[in-house]
């Protein structure tokens, strides 16, 4: 991966988070290397309602829970997950 190329990441919001930002999905471009935490910061800065999201939400990358320190790659799907309440 050419680190000079910005990565384009799809960010999904669910449940209460989707209500806070008023949408269920945004696209974010950011320079590599980048982490899930960088994606969260970008979303909180760039989108209306983003500030209402927690700074350290539960997150998943490509359908698997990931730490905020995990690296993201171009084309990744990053999901911000409110506290899980299934069952």
């Amino acid at each position: 991966m050419d680190t000079a190329t910005p990565a384009r990441v799809r960010v999904l919001f669910f449940a209460r988070y989707a209500e806070l930002v008023g949408r269920s999905e945004v696209a974010v471009s950011l320079p590599l290397p980048a982490t899930v935490g960088d994606v969260v910061r970008r979303v909180r800065q760039d989108f209306p309602g983003g500030q209402a999201l927690p700074e350290r939400p539960l997150a998943a990358v490509n359908l698997k829970q990931a730490k905020l320190e995990a690296r993201v790659q171009d084309g990744d799907e990053v999901a911000l997950l409110p506290p899980i309440a299934g069952g």
Partner: peptide, 13 residues
């Protein structure tokens, strides 16, 4: 069921 509560991304209102 315990793992579902911990891992499976479902939300309730």
């Amino acid at each position: 069921i315990e793992e579902v509560k911990r891992r499976v991304p479902v939300w309730k209102k």
